[in-house]
Deep mutational scan, measured.
Amino acid sequence: MSIQHFRVALIPFFAAFCLPVFAHPETLVKVKDAEDQLGARVGYIELDLNSGKILESFRPEERFPMMSTFKVLLCGAVLSRVDAGQEQLGRRIHYSQNDLVEYSPVTEKHLTDGMTVRELCSAAITMSDNTAANLLLTTIGGPKELTAFLHNMGDHVTRLDRWEPELNEAIPNDERDTTMPAAMATTLRKLLTGELLTLASRQQLIDWMEADKVAGPLLRSALPAGWFIADKSGAGERGSRGIIAALGPDGKPSRIVVIYTTGSQATMDERNRQIAEIGASLIKHW
């Protein structure tokens, strides 16, 4: 067993022997301040990774656009098919120029040779490549099948209805392509620590998230040296922004954090800054 596999296998073990965790309302004060600064709703939840206990939450059962955070769930569904012998990570998928959609920095470079399922998941999570996500959605049967996968996990809230990039439209009061912070946090925890996926697939999923290259201005910008984070960000229309993450000190994750916002007129930089400040408060009061 590799060191990384050992780390993920012992996530519940280490967490069980940690000192009790206590909620700190100071972080919620910052979440509410972010709402004021952005002029928009902000949803927040913080779960203990081992027990699933909610440590703090704000608007945990209000719907927010998922945006690209759905790509972690998508690759979880792909990995479940791999575990069941219905898919192979090494299978190569070929596609054409007509398949390319807006923001496809990886797939646009491989029109000639195609990409493997493993490479597509890596591109979808680490670079948020939209064509990679659409190609992977095709392998599982489309958005409705991802929703069905989530329902089978016990998540009857999260739903995907459309493809990239239309799913980022974020129309107010439109339930399409949305989740709730509580539902997303619980589902992410199941994917990373539950028995739904094999140990190898859980490790692969967290490795992809740990290698995320496009979430630097968010929670990662607030992390002290030595902290662990595996995350996936999302951005959408109407001032929408979000991030889902597993993080913790001492090089291992111990909490799940989900943050979503929508309806702001603020710039992307300002949305990023507010999420980073929430992260800084979380870490300060850990």
Rank of each mutant, 00 (worst) to 15 (best):
255 R>S: 07
115 M>P: 02
27 T>L: 11
38 L>N: 13
78 V>L: 14
177 D>S: 04
30 K>C: 13
177 D>I: 01
152 N>F: 04
224 P>V: 04
214 V>Q: 07
248 G>L: 01
106 V>I: 15
147 T>M: 05
202 R>F: 05
129 D>A: 00
173 N>E: 04
221 S>K: 02
46 E>S: 12
109 K>W: 10
76 G>S: 09
204 Q>T: 05
259 I>S: 07
111 L>D: 09
221 S>E: 05
126 T>F: 05
42 V>L: 04
282 L>Q: 10
52 G>E: 13
268 M>Q: 11
203 Q>W: 02
94 H>S: 06
135 L>M: 12
60 P>F: 14
149 F>M: 04
85 G>N: 05
164 E>A: 00
166 E>Y: 14
63 R>I: 14
180 M>L: 04
121 C>A: 06
215 A>E: 11
131 T>M: 12
82 V>Y: 09
202 R>N: 13
124 A>M: 14
265 Q>V: 07
40 A>H: 09
25 P>Y: 08
96 S>D: 13
137 L>G: 08
216 G>D: 07
115 M>T: 05
90 G>C: 05
281 S>W: 04
102 E>H: 02
207 D>Q: 02
277 E>C: 10
162 R>Q: 12
241 R>C: 15
191 L>C: 13
281 S>V: 05
164 E>M: 00
48 D>E: 03
279 G>H: 04
137 L>D: 02
235 A>G: 14
151 H>S: 09
201 S>C: 12
213 K>M: 04
245 A>E: 00
204 Q>H: 07
201 S>V: 13
47 L>I: 07
115 M>A: 05
155 D>I: 02
177 D>C: 09
253 P>M: 15
43 G>Q: 01
188 L>G: 07
183 A>E: 11
250 D>R: 03
141 G>K: 14
127 M>V: 11
190 K>V: 11
24 H>C: 05
263 G>D: 10
225 A>C: 04
221 S>Q: 05
235 A>R: 14
191 L>F: 02
252 K>E: 12
77 A>D: 08
268 M>H: 09
161 D>Q: 05
269 D>K: 03
263 G>P: 07
259 I>V: 05
251 G>K: 15
147 T>F: 02
155 D>N: 10
63 R>M: 15
125 I>L: 03
53 K>V: 13
275 I>N: 01
161 D>V: 05
280 A>H: 14
35 E>W: 02
265 Q>D: 14
203 Q>V: 07
269 D>G: 07
238 R>H: 12
274 Q>H: 08
171 I>R: 15
100 L>I: 12
200 A>W: 06
129 D>Q: 00
87 E>M: 10
262 T>G: 08
27 T>N: 12
58 F>V: 14
63 R>H: 10
247 L>Y: 14
125 I>C: 07
157 V>K: 07
83 D>R: 04
48 D>C: 14
171 I>E: 15
273 R>P: 10
226 G>K: 05
187 T>Q: 15
80 S>D: 14
201 S>E: 11
97 Q>H: 09
52 G>F: 07
81 R>E: 04
234 G>E: 01
87 E>Q: 11
38 L>S: 13
167 L>T: 10
182 A>L: 11
190 K>C: 12
126 T>K: 06
110 H>I: 04
240 S>E: 15
92 R>K: 15
57 S>T: 05
256 I>P: 00
91 R>H: 10
41 R>I: 11
114 G>I: 05
281 S>Y: 04
167 L>N: 07
183 A>F: 11
185 A>P: 01
121 C>P: 00
284 K>I: 15
261 T>K: 08
194 G>Q: 13
64 F>K: 01
66 M>A: 10
206 I>W: 07
285 H>A: 04
133 A>W: 00
79 L>S: 07
157 V>Q: 10
152 N>G: 07
96 S>M: 14
283 I>V: 04
138 T>W: 11
185 A>N: 01
144 K>A: 03
273 R>E: 15
140 I>H: 08
194 G>E: 11
166 E>T: 11
75 C>D: 01
272 N>V: 12
275 I>E: 01
252 K>W: 08
273 R>C: 14
262 T>E: 10
130 N>W: 01
161 D>N: 07
229 I>E: 09
60 P>G: 05
275 I>W: 15
268 M>F: 03
181 P>F: 00
99 D>R: 05
280 A>Y: 05
220 R>T: 12
85 G>M: 07
41 R>G: 07
52 G>V: 11
56 E>V: 09
38 L>F: 06
223 L>R: 06
73 L>A: 11
170 A>C: 02
234 G>I: 00
230 A>D: 00
100 L>N: 12
248 G>H: 13
210 E>D: 15
102 E>V: 04
226 G>T: 10
251 G>V: 13
